[in-house]
């Protein structure tokens, strides 16, 4: 069998003393598109953040491209879209500057050569933001901002794309653009792991869905059928559990 790109076995992690992952098994094979689903607090974000090394695993094994994650250094192969960036950005920055930082892993000593600059433009074209190159990111809407963060991950032309709720706070038109961008990545052979709240326009792309509940995998297979109110025709995707959902998504770059 082909070596999995991500192999997590019995992953255990806790946040603030509370166990969040309680023995999660997750394998993602090359070229697969896997959606990680589950309610708020089910541990899906923590699972993704432990895979990229942001949350330490207290138990279990994790391999990326066949290398134990602890010794994995080849981060240029991974593109990451965080749910929101850490509070930073007291200084204005343009779309180009932010997306260029996604190309760093591919450059030598941070030198941007012509190929690197072209890759940045290509990534922005993929998400339909190439005309906003010189605009400051704090002038963008939530959906545009999310597209920039995705372009940043795509700028490094990663083999593995990991996205934490890329569709949160993004309107339908932007979701379609992102679905198209993702389709192009899959077509060129990229592997994708994404945390989602709802499948939405991405549904046809998803090969497999893994559902977490209370830090355990409760479903691993084809995308599950919608249940309850979600299954009703004309379901409006207004999520009461999103809490103060009216608030725009905070990615940190906007502040």
């Amino acid at each position: 069998m082909e070596q999995p790109v991500i192999a997590l076995r019995g992953g255990v992690a806790s946040l603030g003393g509370r166990p969040v992952l309680r023995g999660v098994d997750l394998a993602v094979r090359p070229g697969e598109v896997v959606a990680l689903l589950g309610a708020n607090g089910s541990g899906k974000s923590t699972a993704v953040r432990s895979i990229v090394g942001q949350v330490p695993l207290t138990g279990g094994e994790l391999e990326l491209f066949g290398t134990p994650q602890r010794r994995f250094r080849d981060w240029a192969r991974v593109g990451y879209v965080p749910q929101r960036t850490t509070a930073a950005g007291g200084v204005p920055a343009t779309v180009r500057e932010v997306v260029s930082s996604g190309r760093l892993a591919r450059t030598r000593f941070g030198m941007m050569r012509r190929a690197d600059k072209e890759a940045v433009i290509r990534a922005l074209e993929l998400v339909g933001m190439a005309d906003r190159l010189g605009d400051p990111v704090d002038a963008l809407s939530g959906g545009q901002h999310q597209r920039v963060l995705i372009a940043r991950a795509l700028a490094g032309e990663p083999e593995l794309l990991i996205m934490d709720e890329p569709m949160a706070g993004v309107d339908l038109a932007s979701q379609e653009v992102l679905a198209e961008a993702l389709r192009a990545q899959v077509a060129r052979g990229a592997t994708v792991l994404l945390v989602l709240h709802e499948l939405g326009p991405l549904e046809p792309l998803i090969d497999r869905a893994v559902v977490l509940r209370d830090g355990c995998v409760v479903h691993d297979g084809p995308p599950p059928e919608a249940v309850g109110q979600h299954a009703l025709p004309g379901h409006d995707h207004v999520h009461p559990h999103a809490g103060p959902a009216a608030e725009p998504i905070r990615t940190g770059l906007l502040t």
Partner: peptide
């Protein structure tokens, strides 16, 4: 700009 992202960039 984004410490978490920078870390995942290696």
């Amino acid at each position: 700009q984004d410490e978490e992202f920078a870390r995942v960039t290696g």
